[in-house]
């Protein structure tokens, strides 16, 4: 099984997506800084987006998702922006109330 094929296929895009996804998951799991966790989420969403775009590309497969792939990727991007805005507001609020950004210390239900 050769990995370095000349015109690249969908698999290569999927591999890049997988690496980004795993990096994101590991980032979310290991970072103690709340904003680091947020960055992990961004990486995960991007990994998923690469898959959508790769399956939607006409250059890689003849029976691709076509526009659907690109449109779903667009929706993911927009939703990620919305999610980041809210998550950031929560993180800032947490920082203001607890004077820390360490997610391990967020162990009270009542702020």
């Amino acid at each position: 099984m050769s990995f370095l094929t000349d015109p690249v296929g969908v698999s290569h895009f999927l591999l890049v997506g997988a690496v980004m996804f795993v990096c994101g998951v590991v980032c979310m799991a290991t970072k103690r800084n709340g904003l680091g966790v947020l960055m992990g989420i961004e990486l995960v969403l991007n990994g998923a987006n690469i898959n959508f775009v790769a399956f939607g590309s006409k250059y890689l497969r003849s029976e691709s998702l076509g526009l659907d792939g690109q449109l779903i990727a667009l929706f993911v991007i927009v939703l990620a922006a919305a999610e980041a805005a809210v998550a950031l507001a929560i993180a800032l609020n947490f920082y203001n109330n607890h004077a820390t950004i360490d997610v391990d210390r967020a162990d009270e239900l009542k702020g």
Binding site: M1, F3, T5, P7, V8, G9, V10, S11, L14, L15, A18, F21, V22, Y59, L60, R61, S62
Partner: peptide
């Protein structure tokens, strides 16, 4: 994930044309 990505023959090569 990598195994899955490379498991389908059709995905591994780009379209010829």
């Amino acid at each position: 994930l990598a195994l899955t990505a490379f498991s389908v023959e059709d995905w591994r090569v780009a379209r010829g044309d």
